[in-house]
């Protein structure tokens, strides 16, 4: 099993009490669903009867019902609660169960505990505190998860863009370790300005990326040079199959615009257009051109902590 950590595996609104949601999180295949009261649950996406994905089934009063033979499993314990057509005096053996995972829902994300130890209290999205309108999405990108995290430090412009903003690759210092995340600032400019970035004396914007040493919670902030936040994006990432990476994200615009934004930015915000875009397609050429720079620290820290890198199933 995995790394004894909470993983933000889906957006809250993507999990419902009708059709189970299939996700792959850090290589684990999961079926997420809710009961009628709105409580979210996660089971391994594998019926222990005939190994068919439980996500092909449906949600019923007592849990999730496999679409192949109708075996039903309790969301919290994974216990098999019903096998169709049993006589009234027959009982399902107590040991019959699907693998169940602990679930914690916070700030619009459904978190799943992957690991054998008892879950702790530190849920990744706890630090994401949105104000006002949010912009959300989900995608699977064709890049390995470890590489996605590394690219988020070395060249986040390959993975995310902010409206009317051009990121530079001038790192404002070296990555620093904070709360088990490597945090790195880089300069950015408004793309509406005529002056190219290399002639800018002081960058008017900062893009701050926070990448986990262990786990998949990424945070990207767009700040003014006074470090007033303009936009915050929380990206939950995890290894999917065949070297791909699952993403789901939430981001919001801070109320403080700082009065520095150009007209295009302000007009687009008034029109409620998204202030950022998480790339669903990664430009391979741009990615290949990225030099390994700050992500070296990520590798070094991982080596020190001997965190096993799981292969996606």
């Amino acid at each position: 099993m995995a790394d004894n950590a909470w993983w933000a595996s889906a957006l809250s609104e993507a999990v419902n009490n009708g059709k189970p949601l299939a996700v792959v999180c850090n290589g684990e295949e999961l079926a997420l669903f809710r009961d009628r009261q709105g409580q979210a649950f996660a089971l391994e996406d594998r019926c222990p009867h005939r190994r068919v994905p439980l996500s092909l089934g449906c949600v019923v009063e007592s849990g999730i019902q496999c679409g192949y033979h109708g075996w039903t499993f309790d969301g919290a314990s994974g216990a098999c609660t019903a096998i169709p057509n049993l006589h009234a005096n027959e009982r399902v053996p107590a040991r019959y169960a699907a693998r169940a995972y602990s679930v914690a829902e916070r700030n619009g994300f459904v978190h799943v505990w992957l690991g054998e130890d008892e879950p702790n209290e530190s849920v990744p999205a706890a630090t994401y505190l949105p104000e006002g309108r949010e912009y959300t999405g989900a995608a699977t990108v064709s890049i390995q998860h470890e590489e996605y995290l590394a690219a988020m430090l070395d060249g986040p412009h390959c993975l995310i863009s902010f409206d009317a903003v051009r990121m530079t690759d001038f790192f404002l210092g070296d990555p620093c370790l904070k709360d088990n995340h490597l945090v790195l600032d880089r300069g950015a400019v408004w793309s509406t300005k005529v002056l190219p970035p290399q002639f800018v004396v002081d960058y008017p914007l900062i893009v701050r990326t926070s990448v986990p040493v262990c786990g998949g919670d990424i945070r990207v902030d767009l700040l003014t040079e006074e470090e007033t936040p303009l936009c915050t994006v929380f990206i939950a990432s995890g290894a999917n199959r065949r070297g791909t990476t699952s993403l789901c994200w939430r981001g919001f615009l801070h109320r403080s615009e700082g009065g520095v934004a150009p007209l295009r930015w302000r007009a687009a915000r008034r029109a409620q257009r998204p202030p950022f875009r998480v790339h669903s397609h990664v430009d391979g050429e741009a990615l290949a051109a990225l030099l390994v720079a700050p992500s070296r620290d990520l590798d070094r820290l991982r080596d020190q902590s001997l965190i096993p890198v799981r292969a996606a199933v």
């Binding site: 594998r46 222990p48 009867h49 005939r50 190994r51 033979h69 075996w71 098999c80 096998i83 057509n85 049993l86 019959y96």
Partner: peptide
């Protein structure tokens, strides 16, 4: 899921 031998055996009912 049946390609390789696994430690996890299938469960069965009388059906």
């Amino acid at each position: 899921r049946y390609l390789d031998e696994s430690d996890r055996r299938d469960l069965h009912s009388r059906f």
